[in-house]
Simulated assay, not measured.
Amino acid sequence: MNDSALTTPTPSSLPVLSVEHFQKRYGDTVAVRDLSLSVEAGDIYGFIGHNGAGKTTLIRSIVGAQAIDGGRIRICGHDVARKPLQAKSALAYVPDNPDVYEFMTGMQYLTFMADIFRVPDDERTRRIGELAERLELTDALGDTVGTYSHGMRQKLVLIGALIHEPRLLVLDEPFVGLDPVASHELKAILHELAARGGAVFFSSHVLEVVEKLCNKVAIIRGGELLTSGTTEQVRGDSSLEDVFLELVEKEA
């Protein structure tokens, strides 16, 4: 695999992502209660739970899309609430249903993302070229996004997320809509990012992918963290699917 699309992030002894006693309410309903976890450099961290468990609520707060009602979230030491620009400059986010301006061409969108993160012209050209080739999107970059399939939009947004070489990549169901070749390539890209000292935090319903790809995992139910740790510790002698079902049924 070509690994030059991502360069080594600046080393740091701080966690790439630190969530401390996080809480979020919607009216009188507590969506997430007293949740703490830490994502270190080199981690590919899976975050799993049933629909409505609180996964997206936490992710939206991590990326600064909604306010935090309690606790603290820090990215590379930067408090998301107090230093949002510093925190956001170190991360990239790909939602489960990416919303992209349909009137733009793929290249215009990627140029727009590179401008936001002030990526130099020579660097953006190299990174776009390499990532588009790996995800087999090169031939479509001149087409408008309105003509793209869901899978093509997913690839485009992934390239846009990686263009500034984030320390933390946050993904919500990243493999939905991707063909097998693109899924395989994305897994390789995530491993490369982690090997360079970055980190990946992603939610998925596909537990087999989480089990094979992630070195750490957390399980949430009803807004509360049931367990977290290395994948081997959480899984034990069972499959991750068996552990997940057993924990969820026990808590229910």
Rank of each mutant, 00 (worst) to 15 (best):
N2Y: 08
L6R: 04
L6I: 14
P9C: 06
E20T: 15
F22R: 01
D34H: 10
S36Q: 11
S38W: 00
E40R: 14
E40V: 07
E40M: 13
E40A: 14
A41L: 06
A41Y: 06
D43M: 11
I44W: 07
Y45T: 06
H50Y: 11
H50M: 13
A53M: 08
T56Y: 12
T57L: 06
I59Y: 08
A65R: 05
A65T: 01
I68K: 03
G77D: 11
S89V: 01
S89M: 05
A92S: 14
V94C: 12
P98F: 09
Y101H: 09
L110A: 09
M113C: 15
A114C: 10
P120W: 06
E123T: 15
R124T: 01
R124A: 00
I128G: 01
I128F: 02
E130I: 13
E130R: 12
L137Q: 05
T138Y: 04
D139M: 14
D143L: 15
V145S: 04
V145Q: 05
Y148C: 14
Y148L: 15
R153N: 13
K155Q: 13
I159R: 10
G160T: 06
A161L: 09
A161M: 07
E165S: 14
R167C: 02
R167I: 01
L171D: 03
D172R: 04
E173Y: 09
G177S: 01
G177H: 03
L178V: 04
P180H: 08
P180R: 06
V181R: 12
V181M: 13
S183T: 15
L186R: 03
L186A: 02
L190N: 04
A194F: 03
A195Y: 00
R196K: 15
V200L: 10
V200A: 10
F201W: 12
F201D: 11
E211M: 06
E211F: 05
K212F: 00
K212W: 00
K212G: 00
C214A: 11
R221H: 13
L226V: 14
T227E: 10
G229P: 09
T230L: 11
V234I: 15
S238H: 15
S238W: 13
S239C: 03
L240G: 08
L240H: 08
L245H: 10
L247C: 03
